[in-house]
Amino acid sequence: MSNTSNTLKINTFTCAWCGLTATKSTTDGALRDHCPSCLHSQHVTDQVEGGPSECHGRMSPIAIAVLRTGDWMLVHRCVRCDELTSNPVCADDNQLILMRMAVRPLAQPPFPLEALGSL
């Protein structure tokens, strides 16, 4: 009872999609808000009005956005209420899913990309 200060205090959460237990803080000290393995998140903050959200739905990663600094942001959409959020990408995030999301639009272009070669 007396050595409670010596016990390891690590905040963890369980991913709502793949069930992985992940730490809330990354190795470089940033706060993690999505699962590093499947990149799914949970809808806990209300983006429109601010403050906490009542939804608690699962948020799936849909897109990669690029800041002016060149850093990648991950755009999530709530599967229950369709709200969008963007969060910075962590260093230990699943690179395969990130790269797949980045090149996914180019695999299914809505117009022939050959026409752009003549510009």
């Binding site: 849909i62 897109a63 990669i64 956005a65 690029v66 755009v75 963007s86 999301m101 996914r104 639009p105 299914q108």
Partner: peptide, 9 residues
Amino acid sequence: LAVFTRPDG
């Protein structure tokens, strides 16, 4: 900001 594809392409 970004482009993404829906499951139907």
